[in-house]
Nucleic acid binder design. Structure first.
Length: 347
DNA sequence: TCTGGGGTCCTAGGACCC
DNA sequence: TCTGGGGTCCTAGGACCC
């Protein structure tokens, strides 16, 4: 979807049309960030992830709205449902992205284009928002293509065009290559995707491990990963930036209570049991630490988990360091339904 | 001008077992 | 007195994505 959150907001309130809309997240004005912004706002240099204080300077006249995730999730579910109608091989990637393998539904790229146009039309008429689509022989190229001509784009890369399409692009365009890897590649004189494709795979593997393998493959247009539904989730977590940095021990400990409640409730709603409990702390200098412990508990009530969180926190108590953000995570999840089915096999 | 919140995957060291 | 090789699980940190 194109600038998904602001687009949904614009649909809900048509007076926002053509205006720069910035969707924000965070505990308050001073500590918030931009989570997504409309194309009008991007013209001013506003980007997602940017501190709200900076965005305010760049684009004081924008409409600033706190994120309404309920609304975005509902909209997302309806859109995903539309997409599922087009093919059996469907993979939801995030709240506003999905892969569709339509090779069984079409005979050529002309056909594929027709389907893409149909998808755009249906979403536009039912949900009043636009999307961008990439069509290609594999997921990586399709993804890059989908971002090629945003918003409301449609980019088709047929097998014979892959090399020509990829080669001039910056390495950063490959999903999986971020800031750090971009810098490391630059040290090797590698700037474009062609540079990766032309370099030695052995060297890339030496330097980047497993990452080097798919990097070279992707740069050469090779990606065999199937389009398939993601299985059970691996973790459930929540984080909160505090209204102000605190070093008072009791306050820190107590601030975990609502997070514990929330995570336990989500686990329950989705029928997950867990074995590993973890905490995350961000200090006032943005240094982060995580601590986790694999438990062998049958009962996991609020008060029991509170005790374990306290234990995980204990080592930081003498430090009196100011804390900015706290987080809680459960992992090593076991789906109760799946578990039951597995047990049934033995019965 | 100063930094959110929800995830996944990878790496590397250490404990432990045979 | 000193020493292998293979495997699994746990833990912490970091890169990356949206």
């Amino acid at each position: 979807m194109d600038s998904f959150y602001p687009s949904v907001e614009k649909r809900e309130d048509t007076s926002l049309n053509d205006k720069p809309v910035i969707v924000t997240i965070g505990p308050n004005e001073g500590r918030g960030v931009v989570t997504s912004c409309s194309y009008e706002a991007r013209k001013y240099g506003v980007k997602s992830g940017m501190a709200l204080q900076i965005a305010r300077k760049l684009c004081p006249n924008a409409i600033y709205l706190p994120a309404n995730f309920e609304l975005y999730r509902e909209t997302s579910e309806r859109i995903m449902h539309i997409l599922e109608q087009f093919t059996e091989q469907f993979e939801k990637v995030s709240i506003d992205e999905a892969y569709l393998d339509i090779s069984n539904v079409i005979i050529d790229y002309k056909d594929a284009k027709k389907i893409a146009l149909k998808i755009k039309k249906v979403i536009k008429s039912k949900e009043k928002i636009t999307c961008s689509i990439g069509i290609a022989p594999n997921k990586i190229v399709a993804k890059i293509a989908s971002g090629f001509n945003k918003p409301n784009g449609l980019t088709i890369v047929s097998p014979k065009d892959i090399k020509k399409f990829l080669e001039p692009l910056s390495v950063k365009k490959l999903p999986g290559i971020g800031k750090k890897t971009e810098v490391e590649l630059k040290k090797l004189g590698i700037i474009t995707i062609k540079d990766i494709a032309d370099s030695s795979k052995v060297l890339l593997v030496e330097k980047f491990g497993k990452n080097g393998v798919w990097m070279w493959d992707a740069a050469n247009g090779i990606d065999e990963s199937p389009v398939e539904e993601r299985g059970y989730r691996k973790s459930i977590s929540t984080q909160r930036t505090l209204l102000e940095d605190i070093d008072e021990w009791n306050k820190i400990v107590n601030s975990f209570s609502p997070l514990i409640e929330e995570v336990l409730q989500r686990a329950d709603e989705e029928s997950y049991d867990f074995r590993t409990l973890g905490i995350m702390l961000t200090f006032d200098n943005f240094k982060k630490v995580t601590r986790e412990k694999t438990l062998h508990l049958t009962k996991k009530s609020q008060s029991i988990i509170e005790e374990y969180v306290k234990q995980l926190l204990e080592e930081f108590r003498p430090e009196h360091r100011k804390i900015r953000r706290i987080g809680l995570k459960i992992s090593n999840l076991m789906h109760k339904e799946k578990n039951r089915l597995l047990l049934d096999d033995y019965m």
